[in-house]
């Protein structure tokens, strides 16, 4: 059996999506929105794309879905590349936008029929495809009601159902759970897990880090148009050796700078993150803090959370 047949590529899982050196500048913009983006999304995986507002996530998704033309670098999806195979790429993928991207005065059935026609699903298959999407997203009860009357949760489910009509190999989910209640969120996350089990490749953006931890196999964090971190989620969340110290009062900036120079210590805006190793044992580090009159209100050992990593690499300052 070849690597191709096994879905592996030189020992690595085969990448369904590979972006290399991708850069993009909007007309009239002073600086590029994306610089030298390199990402690989393994076939059948769920890939979390994170970043603050304005970081470049939407631009990257627009390039991956063919909404924008690649200016620099290359994008390969499956065996296809942009712009030559744009139509084939569009046929194998689907985007579920963050907005309720359907017609509010049409019913769920009418919306599904319209998009099924637009996707070019043959009439003989259409009914079965629609039934499956309706079942996956549990839309049976509201099928013939105008979608403007739906709750936020049902609208999100319809939004997702439309994206599943072609049973795409690659599905882009752009914040699919924003603004809905816990029950609807739980339902949608469970539905996405079922899609993963069926081998669908998913590129997932969200500001809810716990969702990304739960769903995604790999994570890329984009900030200021650059990929600042790309790792398997499991690696990121490995119980690290860090010690998280919440001081009883915020240290002076000068002291923080000094600590950063002298010790393996980083300030994340609320806590000091100490990384013991070598001569710096946990106890020696805590002693040094005491010498600098830093009182300890709370201390936590190891166990990274994605949000901590995210804030660590994207910093905590508000974005425009």
């Amino acid at each position: 059996m070849t690597d191709d047949a096994r879905g592996v590529d030189g020992g690595e899982p085969r990448a369904l999506v590979a972006a290399e050196g991708v850069a993009y500048r909007y007309d009239g913009a002073e600086s590029p929105s994306l610089h030298d983006i390199n990402i690989r999304v393994a076939q059948g995986s769920c890939f979390g794309l994170l970043g603050p507002n304005g970081a470049g996530k939407t631009t990257l998704i627009s390039l991956l879905t063919g909404l924008l033309r690649v200016q620099d670098g290359s994008i390969r999806i499956g065996d296809y590349t942009f712009p030559r195979d744009a139509a084939a790429i569009k046929r194998m993928s689907a985007l579920v936008p963050q907005e309720y991207a359907f017609y509010p005065t049409l019913t769920a059935r009418e919306n599904l029929e319209f998009f099924a026609g637009l996707y070019g699903i043959p009439a003989a298959e259409r009914s079965a495809r629609m039934e499956e999407c309706i079942a996956v997203c549990s839309l049976e009860q509201v099928l013939d009601k105008r979608s403007q009357s739906y709750s936020g949760g049902i609208k999100r489910r319809l939004n997702l159902a439309i994206g599943l009509l072609t049973s795409p190999r690659l599905l882009y989910l752009d914040e699919p759970t924003v603004g809905i209640d816990a029950q609807s969120r739980h339902f949608i996350l469970a539905a996405i897990e079922r899609l993963q089990e069926r081998g669908m490749t998913i590129i997932y953006t969200s500001h809810y880090m716990e969702e990304v931890e739960q769903l995604c196999d790999d994570v890329a964090i984009i900030d200021d148009g650059r990929v600042v971190l790309q790792e398997p989620t499991s690696t990121l969340l490995q119980g690290g050796s860090q010690v998280y110290v919440t001081p009883s009062g915020a240290p002076e900036p000068a002291l923080l700078e000094r600590l950063a120079r002298e010790l393996p210590a980083q300030w994340d805006g609320a806590r000091l993150i100490l990384t013991p190793g070598g001569e710096h044992t946990v106890s020696s580090l805590l002693q040094r803090l005491e010498q600098h009159a830093i009182g300890i209100e709370r201390m936590q050992m190891g166990g990274h959370r994605l949000e901590e990593i995210y804030l660590g690499v994207t910093r905590t300052d508000l974005r425009a």
């Binding site: 689907a94 985007l95 579920v96 907005e99 309720y100 998009f115 070019g120």
Partner: peptide
């Protein structure tokens, strides 16, 4: 405005 056109333009039409 509601992203429907964005979705439509990702479809091969």
């Amino acid at each position: 405005q509601v992203g429907t056109l964005r979705r439509i333009r990702t479809i091969a039409v």
